[in-house]
Amino acid sequence: MNIMIVGVGGQGTLLASRILGRVAIKEGYDVKVSEVHGMSQRGGSVVTYVKYGDKVYSPIIDRGEADIVLAFEILEAYRAMPYLKKGGKMIANTQKMNPMPVITGAMEYPSDIEKKLSEKINLQAVDALSLAEQAGTIKAVNVVLIGLLAKSMSVDKSVWIETIKETVPEKFIELNLKAFELGYNL
C-alpha cells in the first residue's frame, strides 16, 4: 500500500505520516515512512510517503504508484495528481494557500482545481479547515484528514484512536480525538 501525504510546510504532514506509519505496524506490516526536514520544510511544498506491505524496499513513491494521496492544500493536491495510481483515490482539503510566485504576482493561482481533479481522478474534497475550527483549532487540520483517511481504509477504528493517543502530546489528546471523529464521521 502506497500513501502519499502532501501539503505546505508547517501544516503538520509529518505528524500525519507518523500516525499512519504506526497504525500500519500495529496491523503487522513492514513499513517505511519517508520524511522531509530542513530548508524544504519552511513553507514550501512538503511530500511524505508511507508505504507498507509484506516487505517494503524503496521508501519513495513514483508517479502513477500512489494508492491514496492525502492532500492538505488544493494546489498541492493538483501538483501531486500525477503520483496517483490509475484507480487510486485522492482525499484533499479545499483550503487555498498562496505560494510566493502568486503572492508576488508572477503567476496566478490555478482556477477550478477541484473540478479539474474530479474530471480526471477519484477525488474526495473536503473543507478540513472548517472542521478543524469546529474541533477547536485550525491546527488540527492534519488529524481531521487522518480521520477521513481512516474511513477509507480497512483498519479498525480503535487502532487509529489508540495510535493518536500515543502520538500526540497528552494535553492535546481530547482535541485531536474530536478532530479525528469529525473527519471520520463525515
Binding site: 519552511r42 498541492e76 501538483r79 503567476m107 490555478p110
Partner: peptide, 11 residues
C-alpha cells in the same frame, strides 16, 4: 498546464 511552484519561504 503550468502551475506555480511553492518554494520554501521565511515563516
Amino acid at each position: 498546464e503550468q502551475i506555480p511552484i511553492r518554494p520554501p519561504v521565511m515563516c
